[in-house]
Amino acid sequence: MAKVLVVTSGKGGVGKTTSTAALGAALAKAGQSVVLVDFDVGLRNLDLVMGAERRVVFDLINVIQGDANLAQALIKDKRVDTLSLLPASQTRDKDALTSEGVAKVIADLSKKFDWVICDSPAGIERGAQMAMHHADMAVIVTNPEVSSVRDSDRIIGMLDSTTEKAKAGEKMEKFLLITRYDPQRAARGDMLGTDDVLEILSIPLLGIIPESPDVLKASNVGAPVTIAEPESAPARAYTEAARRLMGEKVEVTIPTERKGLFDWLFKRRVA
């Protein structure tokens, strides 16, 4: 039986889609079979970040409404063969996400994959509620910044009250993923530190992703950072976070950029 994981945050632009792609790819590279499901109906972007935008034929809504079957709608990744994508619809309305329809798709995907990772839209409306509703565990993506932390707190409250698991009286497993973290600014006291965010939200830490130009570079070329730049600091942080998701005990550190002597010399010469 698959683990159903929702990647959520409340606030937009904190890195949900980037993190969904990076974590999913890292899990797939570790040999797990993974499907990424985009719940952002109307504003899909996971296909673009995954570099599959030109291969979308059918989408989640088509499957829910019976216009296509899962096999037709799933897009297999060309780089990692255990990774698949179920895109969201770009044209339909969020109301097309019916509870029964979503439940059936998640149940069918659970039979085929080890991990079903749901990329939630921003906000607390229907799309976000549907994305979290059937989840067994949640990754809450948070930037070390006041509005993001506040919205994460609200989402944690919803995970504990509105989801199927919460209604059945079971506990939802929740993990905090801090993204766009700048250790230097935090050390200067100009950015909330990881301890501050952890103390306020009080859920276990999955990982700290340092702010890095490699994340944008990866999305520019349509690849998860864990595939495009696997040795970069953010990719190593995501890979370690994925190992923690699989239950491994890995100490949380903040990876730093590895600058080889060659890089250094080369940079000096160019400049």
Binding site: G189, M191, D196
Partner: peptide, 26 residues
């Protein structure tokens, strides 16, 4: 010149303590 992060932390702690009661579970 004093760091801004502690201010952010304190503001959040006060705000969220109230919002958790106010919003509760809907």
């Amino acid at each position: 010149r004093r760091s801004s992060a502690p201010v952010a932390r304190d503001r959040l702690q006060i705000l969220l303590a109230h919002e958790r009661i106010a919003v509760g579970d809907g």
